[in-house]
Design a protein around this nucleic acid. Structure first.
Lengths: 209, 209
DNA sequence: CTCTAGTTTTGCAATAGATGCAACTTTGCA
DNA sequence: TGCAAAGTTGCATCTATTGCAAAACTAGAG
């Protein structure tokens, strides 16, 4: 349970390389000919493994799309720890910013390929949303940890609100092709609304025309 | 484009009956033996149609699970209209309450079967989430309509926050088996947090232990 | 009532993802 | 060097999903 750092293990190392090879090959093929136009067999051939082996690394064709993203998010979740002296609100805010940094970075890096991919294919979009609820659960757990006596519903609502708000804005920015800077500005605004609620959006309190 | 009321049409009527038969049979089988344990062939047999015909009514096995829910949500979206004199904030609040009423009602009625089904199967949960983003888009559109000049990001963030918050609480209540009344109380609390933001959750502002 | 044109339902075949199983290799280590 | 665990692969099989074309059915026009 305590052997993470500095011990890949020769065997383990190879597995990682294979996993990476599969992911890379798959992404390349998806970008070239499209998602459904690429079969498991194609990927296997490109990664130089047997088709059957694919499933030893990824439970489904869909999951390979998120391989890289998952890795990055895993790193981030390491940083989701508490920092002495902070108020829970600050911790949450910092955590959100961390995750967003990862998202924005990933967006700039792989960008176009996967974004388009995930946005088009319903199956992939669904898978992506699944990832989000996982994140939501993680944040809820963090909240409970930070605020031992927090009312159950408050923790649930707060995490849902935070994730929901961020998700909506990120999706919107990607769909509209925002550049990283604009996206950043938009996200800052979203964080503000998450913290201060819909009442802080003046437009919502003005009587409709 | 204007022939909805009072004209089913003999032929059309039969289609609706078949559709209903398929949905009913499918739900029953899912409840009895489980989702993946039920094949399209089984459903077809129970609904007394050819397997191939199933796909003439539903694009996929997953969709049949949401047949009833979709119908209900369609009704609700009819009520998502503005009411003169209300402030946008009030309209949003009322709309959310409307949707929640539908959700709670559906929960009490079909309850156990589908809820368990959707919660267990990853594929179904994903599909359900997809439904949510649709709702989110609808709310965003409503917002834009209500507040002509509202900043793009504000509309996006607000709808994401509202839907995200509600979704989290509803899912939580179902998972924990809340009764309709408790669920209602929880949702009211959630609406409050959505409106006033995370800063309104006292626990979040107290320094962590 | 009957026939025609249009619609639905089916049957059949084929594709592709996913899984269980068992044989075959490779690797870690005594 | 030799064994046992771990990783790969080939094969058979299941199931969802789709294209195609024949068969069955229905609404109306004669």
């Amino acid at each position: 349970m305590d052997e993470e750092r500095a011990r890949p293990g020769l065997r383990e190392r190879k597995k990682q390389r294979t996993r990476q090879a599969i992911a890379t090959a798959a992404l390349r093929l998806f970008a070239e000919r499209g998602y459904e136009e690429t079969t498991i067999a194609d990927i296997a051939a490109a990664a130089d493994i047997a088709p059957r082996t694919f499933f030893g690394y990824f439970p489904s064709k869909e999951d390979v799309v998120f391989a890289e993203i998952d890795d990055r998010l895993a790193e981030v979740s390491e940083r989701l720890r508490r920092t002495p002296g902070e108020t829970p609100m600050e911790t949450i805010r910092r955590s959100i910013v961390d995750v967003l940094n990862a998202v924005v970075a990933e967006h700039a890096e792989y960008g176009a390929i996967q974004v388009a991919l995930v946005l088009e294919r319903p199956a992939l979009r669904a898978r992506a949303l699944q990832r989000l609820t996982d994140a939501q659960d993680a944040i809820e757990a963090l909240l409970r940890d930070l605020c031992p006596g927090i009312p159950e519903i408050d923790a649930v609502a707060a995490s849902g609100i935070a994730v929901g708000g961020m998700q909506a804005v990120v999706a919107h920015c990607r769909r509209e092709g925002y550049d990283p800077v604009s996206m950043r500005t938009a996200l800052d605004r979203a964080v503000h609304v998450v913290e201060h609620g819909l009442v802080s959006v003046e437009a919502l309190s003005r009587p409709s025309p």
